[in-house]
Amino acid sequence: MKQFLVIIILVVFGCKNSNEVQPVEEIEPIESIETDLEIYDFEGLKPFLNQEDDKIHVVNFWATWCAPCVKELPYFETVNRNYADKNVEVLLVSLDFPRQYDTKLKPFLKKEQLNSKVICFDDIDQNTWIPAIDKDWSGAIPATLIYKNGKRKFYEGSFTMENLEAELKNFLN
């Protein structure tokens, strides 16, 4: 995949800047500027779901292709903004298809300028990690995990602003 990406970038930049194909080493910094995505497999994601730091973590699983997910993103953004001083942190975990990182996800992030942290989660072994994240999660998105240290609750489905704040308040005391 990475090689593929490098090839694409090589092609794109090759066309734009010069007809010469540049060596990979020189391309890499450009790639890191272009692709500021953090991409994790399940092992990499796990620490984000199990932080014991007295903060309230709101972890939302979403994708640009998921209309109800996109609809509720502003609510998570509001929470991230309005509750930052109450130790609440929002993490938006994108389940976008890797082949659409460049065509869909990056343009979306550029346009929306989200203030919450966004990471990409790409792990093919769904049958393992879905029940590991929550035993009752069927795999439908949107889905959200709220946790603080050992206390956690998982929500499969859409939130309204009111519902999200109400659930958050259960963790604020």
Partner: peptide
């Protein structure tokens, strides 16, 4: 039984 990601039923 297996799990997979999918789009919520609208």
């Amino acid at each position: 039984e297996t799990r997979a990601i999918g789009c919520s039923i609208k």
